[in-house]
Simulated scan of single mutants.
Amino acid sequence: MTFSSTNEDHLLFDAARKGDIDYIKERIAAGADLNITDGRGFTPMIIAAYDGHEEVTRLMLEAGADVNAQDGGGNTALMGVCFKGYPEIAKLLVEKGADLNLQNGNGGTALMFATLFGRNELVKLMKELGADTTIKDIKGLTALDLAYQQGNEEAKEILQ
């Protein structure tokens, strides 16, 4: 990944944040690097997914954005959408090759994010798609352990 430095790069990040598909199409046609990163390690695709822009996310993935790109903390777009609660974008990311079991710097996974933030539809989806429920974070906790900590009865049912 390359750290962004040009005005066009900054505009690309803004367009991803706003879901400006027309501008992103122009930048792709002009050969924009979709795997550039900002100061926090976010790529434009991570931002678009995190902000709920499904069609922009799809466009960037189809144009070569790295579906498993990790930000400065090791978080992926899939982790972000599991935190925010966007099941349709999660499905898209997995269809495009997102690694369900990739761990961030704290050992967290997309399934753990969904569990921690009560996104039970995504807990179910991640499990159905094959997320490993036995992975432990740096504290030695699994997604099920996190469900117990959160008092999330529905997630406990799903994960057992």
Rank of each mutant, 00 (worst) to 15 (best):
28 I>W: 07
109 T>H: 14
34 L>K: 10
60 M>C: 11
70 Q>N: 05
35 N>F: 02
112 M>W: 05
94 V>D: 00
69 A>H: 01
56 V>C: 07
103 Q>P: 12
25 K>H: 09
153 E>L: 15
149 Q>W: 03
143 A>S: 14
126 M>N: 07
21 I>T: 12
1 M>A: 13
100 L>R: 02
3 F>T: 15
156 K>Q: 15
31 G>I: 11
26 E>Y: 11
74 G>L: 08
14 D>V: 13
18 K>F: 02
22 D>L: 07
119 R>P: 04
112 M>V: 08
38 D>F: 04
127 K>L: 13
76 T>K: 10
123 V>E: 02
46 I>G: 00
71 D>G: 11
57 T>D: 04
37 T>S: 08
88 E>N: 13
47 I>H: 05
122 L>N: 07
105 G>I: 05
40 R>S: 14
57 T>E: 06
4 S>I: 08
97 G>E: 10
69 A>W: 01
109 T>D: 11
121 E>N: 03
38 D>P: 01
15 A>R: 09
38 D>N: 15
66 D>A: 14
48 A>S: 14
54 E>S: 11
105 G>V: 07
89 I>F: 00
6 T>M: 03
34 L>D: 11
119 R>M: 01
86 Y>A: 01
15 A>E: 03
136 K>N: 08
99 D>S: 08
35 N>C: 01
106 N>K: 13
154 E>P: 08
81 V>Q: 02
10 H>M: 10
36 I>D: 07
73 G>D: 14
24 I>K: 12
25 K>R: 15
111 L>Q: 08
27 R>L: 07
121 E>H: 04
28 I>G: 04
118 G>A: 14
77 A>W: 00
127 K>Q: 12
14 D>C: 09
33 D>N: 15
104 N>I: 00
89 I>Y: 00
145 D>F: 10
88 E>R: 03
66 D>P: 12
112 M>I: 10
113 F>T: 00
22 D>I: 12
64 G>C: 12
70 Q>C: 02
99 D>V: 05
154 E>C: 08
132 D>T: 06
95 E>C: 10
104 N>M: 01
83 F>N: 13
56 V>S: 06
63 A>I: 09
105 G>K: 03
152 N>H: 06
126 M>C: 14
45 M>L: 12
64 G>F: 05
